[in-house]
Design a protein around this nucleic acid. Sequence first.
DNA 1: CTGAAAGCGCTTACAG
DNA 2: CTGAAAGCGCTTACAG
Lengths: 347, 347
Amino acid sequence: VLEAGHPTPQRKARSGRVSLATIAELAGVSSPTVSKVLNRRDGVGPDTRQRVEELLRDHGYRRAHLDARVPTLEVVHHHMLSSISMEILRGVTEVAAGHGHTVTFVDASHEFTGQARWIEALVQRRPAGVITVVSGVSPQEADLLAKEQIPLVALDPVGEMYAVPAVGSSNWSGALSGTRHLLELGHRRIGVLSGPVRDLSARARLDGFRAALDYAGVPYNVQLERNGAFTFESGLELGLQLLSRPEPPTAIVCSDDLQAMGVLEAARQKGLRVPQDLSVVGFDDIEQASWTSPPLTTVRQPFAEMGAAAARIVLGLADGKAPTQSRLELDTPLIVRGSTAPPSPTR
Amino acid sequence: VLEAGHPTPQRKARSGRVSLATIAELAGVSSPTVSKVLNRRDGVGPDTRQRVEELLRDHGYRRAHLDARVPTLEVVHHHMLSSISMEILRGVTEVAAGHGHTVTFVDASHEFTGQARWIEALVQRRPAGVITVVSGVSPQEADLLAKEQIPLVALDPVGEMYAVPAVGSSNWSGALSGTRHLLELGHRRIGVLSGPVRDLSARARLDGFRAALDYAGVPYNVQLERNGAFTFESGLELGLQLLSRPEPPTAIVCSDDLQAMGVLEAARQKGLRVPQDLSVVGFDDIEQASWTSPPLTTVRQPFAEMGAAAARIVLGLADGKAPTQSRLELDTPLIVRGSTAPPSPTR
DNA sequence: CTGAAAGCGCTTACAG
DNA sequence: CTGAAAGCGCTTACAG
């Protein structure tokens, strides 16, 4: 029953949605009160708050606008790295969700026709922060983000650093401990498959390998070093090369698990048993590493944790908190499985 | 030089950004004019437009608010499927980007503390559409999305369908052709590893397998059927069971590549050579399938294409276009590699 | 082609 | 605890 004389102003229901003012009217309170409830501010009586909350819910109220600074972290990929990218994304998402942020997946590996460059589109969207995965960002891109005050963290970046905060893992120490493991088992003729030359983390792994030999007083034999890509095919091809030498290595350290899987296949093709005739060490500890035959001894990169750490740093940056260090390196433990053993005495 | 008497109102530069009014002032035009330029409406002279555009650019103008309906597709995962999820995401992203849409990655596999249920948070964000990956959505969740007019497409959903448009692949025909391939090679004692019983696509694969036998007049032997999970471990365990039988199968059809990799390992442990002593067929054609030893013969699911198709359908739905069919099935070609061969005559 | 005026959907600062 | 008033950052409808 309407009270006599009570005005019933007609709200234009734009797009069929109720406005804050409508809710206020229905609740018999003012707009500021509804606004306070909506924004979880205090200064609203418990009954009023509850009544307004109910109305808001029942009428499916949604704000008409969102702040342009959207609670989103954008994760930019230039190369898709299948299960690795997924692990990183999982880590980022977990932290982001805990802070009420959403995660946008950006594939910058190819520019789409008619699209602005990914960075321009990204800037337009005004995310709270950006995380680049594996391949970093150009100095110009970093500058643009800085100018736009969009915080950026590089995850395991390749190449130069332009003072962008970064999260990586201890590539050098990882390769060092993988190599030491082989040395301790008694190997002396150890081959190494390195990664892309322009890739700093690949370089760090190679240096860690060399450092371990050096430290153990084992002379470095360039003949046993092969440079390749982070792929199965590369591991297969270079593994075959190394194993076809007159004096083949008794162990091979790889810079990537895919490579190591290629080496496992090379050994198979050469009729060599792993680990009896050849020990193999990988890098990354992807899921498949525990399913190879034998399961792969490898250096673990904690991808989900790296994603989570990167997310925490961007989120902090967005809050005006400078990171305590410009580069965070997570630990790379050696996971010993079945692909390593002492060298056979006959070889 | 300032004109005498020209007022210089002080704009409060909130958050350091210029407002539309500031730009209008600088351009010596009114707000409506700037608004028109901004929204690419006509009714603005070319010179004026150009001047305003320049000012907008030079001052890095950004709108303070965004329409709540954001050009975003949200991809919801309940289980992470490593490289498969990544492929799907790639397909979705490519199509979305082509339509100026962004892709948000939602991990609904566990609810985070203090967070609303993922669906509530999602509804608040008002994406243009939602794609669920592999595990679908509850009827309540589907209803909520329908009520909120947020279009939904289920990618390869498990279980019931609640009239949600879906994109899948031809599971039944895929398993049929994988099995036929073995029959044509001469196999008769063929084992099968099925997937989770509640999973409709797993069921379709099992049925395709049975249909192939049936059609070829090969009697079905339940003893050679094992029910398991889509994991390496499951494949290893059940493969071992099957291969330990007094009359082991000469071939095994798997419902998943990971399972098939487990079977490969089981064969190895049993001292059986693949494909001479045992043929193995997988399902999915994940990247690793070509790196096993021998490379896996498998039924390909075109994940990126499925993601792309799902994206096209939600985008259409968001545009008010009903899909031409409620379920789209993409083709599942058989990829013949090295893990299948005629059965050895001695076995 | 342009802009004064009104309006929308909020929020803020403050008086009571 | 509540809300009238002012204000922000836009857009709309229309007069010129």
